[in-house]
Design a protein around this nucleic acid. Sequence first.
RNA 1: GGGGGAGUCGCAUAGCGGCAAUUGCAACAGACUGUAAAUCUGUCCUCUUCGGAGUUCGGUGGUUCGAGUCCACCCUCCCCCA
Length: 393
Amino acid sequence: MTDVPIFSLILPKITNKMQFTIEHRDPHSSARAGVITTDHGPIQTPIFMPVGTVGTVKAVHINDLRDQVHAQIILGNTYHLYLRPGMDIIEAAGGLHKFNGWDRPILTDSGGFQVFSLAACRKIKPEGVRFQSHIDGSRHLFTPEKVIDIQRSIGSDIMMAFDECPPYPCDYHYARKSLDITLDWLSRCWQHYRETPPKYGHYQSLFPIIQGSVFKDLRSRSMEEIIKYNSDGIAIGGIAVGEPTDLMYEMADFCCRQLPADKPRYLMGVGTPVNILENIALGVDMFDCVMPTRNGRNGMIFTWEGMLNMRNEKWKDDFSPIDADSDLIADRIYSRAYLRHLYAANEILGPMIGSMHNLHFYLDLVKTARQKIAEGVFAEWKDQVVPKLATRL
RNA sequence: GGGGGAGUCGCAUAGCGGCAAUUGCAACAGACUGUAAAUCUGUCCUCUUCGGAGUUCGGUGGUUCGAGUCCACCCUCCCCCA
């Protein structure tokens, strides 16, 4: 693969209607606290965004998501929603907000992660990616233009550029080739973004995604090109794909030091509670991860005291609340023994409580982090709580 | 009383002369990081230095180099007819 020209045209400036205001900076780390404004309301950063791949945050009712979990923005996925229910239905509904009843901001992933996770049923080409549907085996071509079209139809407040998320480990040659393609796709995404209006009246941002695997020169080149677009925000991708945790922090740190200070930084797919605090300290503002919902469905509960596997026998007669100090109603009215019983009995309420609890915890985690940043004590506080968060109860 | 069927590692199952013995459930533990995940993996007779070793298939004898499998008797349970 030869180098692909990144800029083949002069880009007219588009009017950004998304604002990011930094309100506080931590004196002893790179953490910052701010507010992103969208047409669907504000997002206070640092923020965790629950993942709702197919238009639903699995097992969590939209009311609970808003009033109990206090989620400010959720994710959807271009690839999944395109396959099912399809854009005809989403458009007929009036966009995803109308379709699923979530009236706060939505961010859609572009399908780039599926290039990684569905490696067995896709083929990457310079013009785009050929997918074979994991649902019915039907064949589809995703191009940067098509991915923008789909996200226009979904009506997400934050759209993501189409990228290739390379696996780890990944040799330099492949990482460079992959980055070339991703940068070319970004150029095409951006042009198509510029050429297409929103369908539902509200403003939609487009976030580029930094790639380059674990190679700093590639990451730098990725950032240099991305910064030229003056996008509303920038995502750090290709991380938490199996590399050691220290390397994850090193890459996030490397990127944050080079990114413009006045734009929100979104670390895609991260992570554990500890990962989130450590990356906030490095200057990351936005996170998403399936961990609270997936692990919640599978019986793993996150708390300020540590993680516990609710399926374990040791909880069978522990009638204390799931979390007595929590302001989540479910945490106080349900006991650990009861929750264990629900998981053991394969009752749907178990995964529902687990998911809601974990999401509430994650939102509480970033909310507390934000308070500590405002108080100027984030770094000390983080070092104090991290050992506890990593404990297995 | 007569006829037929069945007893296998918690439960349920497979097994038809080379077997520590199939599968499911249950149980116990682990994994999960831009969701092909209410999923997946491991353990699940005893001991083990993880190489193995020792005891097993209702009971007791027997046939055989070798028996959960074949034979005899006994015990228990189920079905049908009286």
